[in-house]
Lab assay of single mutants.
Amino acid sequence: NKFNKEQQWATYEILNLPNLNEEQRKAFIDSLKDDPSQSANLLAEAKKLNDAQA
């Protein structure tokens, strides 16, 4: 299913963002699990935070 693929991709991407700390990473991944339909939005937020902390 589409959300499952998006969720897996977003999880992979978030795990590989270098500037997030473990707590932030875990929070994003927990949110992905809670609502896979928000995968794209959550990934965008994670990338923004990652860039802000660069």
Results as ranks from 00 to 15, higher is better:
N1Y: 01
K2V: 09
K2E: 15
F3Y: 09
F3I: 15
F3M: 14
N4E: 15
N4I: 08
N4T: 12
N4Q: 11
K5G: 08
K5T: 14
K5F: 03
K5E: 15
E6W: 11
E6N: 04
E6G: 04
Q7E: 13
Q7V: 15
Q7R: 03
Q7P: 03
Q8I: 12
Q8E: 13
A10Y: 11
A10N: 03
T11A: 15
T11K: 08
T11W: 15
T11Y: 15
Y12W: 13
Y12N: 06
E13V: 15
E13D: 04
E13R: 10
I14R: 00
I14D: 01
I14P: 00
L15E: 11
L15F: 05
N16E: 05
L17T: 00
L17P: 00
L17H: 02
P18F: 07
N19R: 04
N19E: 04
N19P: 00
L20K: 00
L20I: 08
L20R: 00
L20A: 00
N21M: 06
N21I: 06
N21S: 13
E22I: 09
E22P: 12
E23P: 06
E23M: 14
E23R: 13
Q24W: 02
Q24P: 00
R25I: 05
R25P: 00
R25T: 05
R25Q: 07
R25L: 04
R25W: 02
K26Q: 10
K26E: 06
K26H: 09
A27L: 14
A27P: 02
F28L: 04
F28M: 04
F28W: 02
I29K: 03
I29P: 00
I29T: 05
I29R: 03
I29S: 03
I29F: 05
I29V: 06
I29W: 04
D30W: 11
S31T: 09
L32A: 04
L32T: 02
K33L: 09
K33I: 14
K33T: 13
D34Q: 14
D35W: 09
D35G: 03
D35M: 08
D35Q: 09
P36D: 03
P36Y: 03
P36W: 06
P36G: 06
S37T: 09
S37V: 05
Q38G: 06
Q38I: 07
Q38N: 05
Q38S: 08
A40M: 15
A40S: 10
A40Q: 09
N41R: 15
N41F: 15
L42M: 12
L42V: 14
L43K: 02
L43R: 04
A44E: 11
A44I: 10
A44V: 10
E45M: 14
A46L: 01
K47L: 09
K47H: 06
K48M: 12
K48Y: 09
L49S: 02
L49I: 09
N50W: 01
N50Y: 01
N50D: 06
N50V: 01
N50E: 02
D51P: 01
A52R: 10
A52M: 11
A52L: 12
A52Q: 11
Q53E: 04
Q53H: 05
Q53T: 06
A54F: 09
